[in-house]
Amino acid sequence: MSEAATQDAVNASVEQPVIKMRGTGVNVFYGDKQALFDVDLDVRQHSVTALIGPSGCGKSTFLRCLNRMNDTIDICKVTGEITLDSENIYAPMIDVVELRARVGMVFQKPNPFPKSIYENIVYGPRIHGQVSTRAEMDEIVEKSLIKAGLFNEVKDRLQEPGTGLSGGQQQRLCIARAIAVSPEVILMDEPCSALDPIATAKVEELIDELRVNYTIVIVTHSMQQAARVSQRTAMFHLGKLIEEGPTDKMFTKPDHKLTQDYITGRFG
């Protein structure tokens, strides 16, 4: 019996997976051009879901649908249903600000605010009214930085600009900033593509730790990264979801030839 199958059996027996977010029949249009076709995808709680696929396949688009960042693009139109804890986030009465407080995001390029490290982290909790006193702020800064594994590196220079950190540190600062608002889901759009291998390793390690408390969806171009950090993988191609499954199964015996070819580097 293969290891993957055993693993599956173990997973199934230990606990029933909780679906944190679920996309049903998601179509996305940029003007006349359709970018996503009828995507059905579940995101399981406390696991890392990797979205892979060649450039322009719609994985980032899908990711940005999950916290409605696509709303900022005028010509973008989304149909279908995406739920967070069974509530449709595209329902008319949904407030995107509330949604984004619960579904945080880390971007491809580290983008700290041109302010101090302290300000970077405190900003989110403050606008959501989660902290007000100095002591609360100090606490959330420390807690977030510790969780992001950055505290020891920056504890003596919290008042220095976040933009003065190295690329990897900046990205972890961005993760700390996202964690600070205590989201339930963290979306990561190729978080390591601008980082060197050492910084990448640190971020990957961090992602693995964060999985315990958060649900993570990550877009990545690196197959190794997907294999290392994720529990489940979804393969996109030309705006369609090709297949989705446990990561080890996807990387050992995928159902589709397309996935097999992509993973082994035969195209993409």
């Binding site: 600000v97 509330e98 971007f107 900003y123 961005c174 600070a180 608002v181």
Partner: peptide, 15 residues
């Protein structure tokens, strides 16, 4: 102003 700053703010739930 780089769009990444806007994204960053919107990403942490700023209106």
């Amino acid at each position: 102003v780089p769009p990444s700053i806007r994204d960053a703010a919107l990403g942490v739930g700023a209106s």
